[in-house]
């Protein structure tokens, strides 16, 4: 892990802030450096496995400065080491570079983050909604969207016996 840290420090200096909690080592990077950091980790540090991409909405989080966070969970498939890369983005147009060019597995994960949080990934080949219906307007995992929705779930005409 110290190698990785040294590598990132050499290349990016203070742009990659290191955080550690339990066994998780996290680097917070700025959105414009994201793709550079990811490709460095993949190609030179050996983190060739993208385990997960997750979005977080920090709207009500204590002492939060930015609205959204996106976390890339990387793993080394040989040594089983893990590293986490976190970027923070803000309204009104949260946009990030797509990691599809590095990992094809990022395809659906980025689509899900887009579907749930509305974070746009530039350069993604097919950025559509994946879980919610095509015409849905809100982003359900944002903190300002209520748990029980806004009534969308009941807006279908019922069938009665005589219909059949």
């Amino acid at each position: 892990m110290s190698n990785t840290q040294q590598l990132l420090a050499d290349r990016f200096g203070d742009f990659a802030i290191r955080e550690e909690f339990r066994d998780n080592v996290r680097f917070v990077v700025s959105p414009d450096r994201l793709l550079d950091v990811l490709s460095l980790l993949k190609n030179e540090a050996g983190f060739d496995f993208l385990a997960d991409i997750t979005g977080i909405d920090y709207l009500h989080y204590p002492n939060a400065t930015d609205r959204y966070g996106v976390v890339y969970c990387l793993a080394n498939s040989e040594t089983a080491e893990r590293v986490y890369v976190k970027v923070l983005v803000n309204d009104p147009e949260p946009t990030l570079e797509s990691a599809y060019s590095l990992w094809k597995g990022a395809d659906w994960m980025e689509r899900e983050v887009f579907d749930m949080f509305g974070i746009v990934f530039d350069g993604h080949p097919d950025l559509r909604r994946i879980l919610m219906p095509e015409g849905f307007a809100a982003f359900p995992l944002r903190k300002d969207y209520p748990l029980r929705g806004r009534g969308e779930r009941h807006n279908f005409e019922p069938n009665i016996r005589a219909d059949g």
């Binding site: 998780n24 385990a51 997960d52 977080i56 009500h60 989080y61 204590p62 969970c73 893990r82």
Partner: peptide
């Protein structure tokens, strides 16, 4: 916040938990 994974029958099943110090998770991916 942290990520922890186990080996489920289908593969790596992980949870990314963000905690804001309350009794329930702030976000659990």
């Amino acid at each position: 916040e942290l990520y922890a994974a186990t080996e489920a029958p289908n593969g790596e099943l992980g949870f990314y938990i963000v905690s804001d110090g309350e009794g329930r998770p702030y976000r659990c991916r």
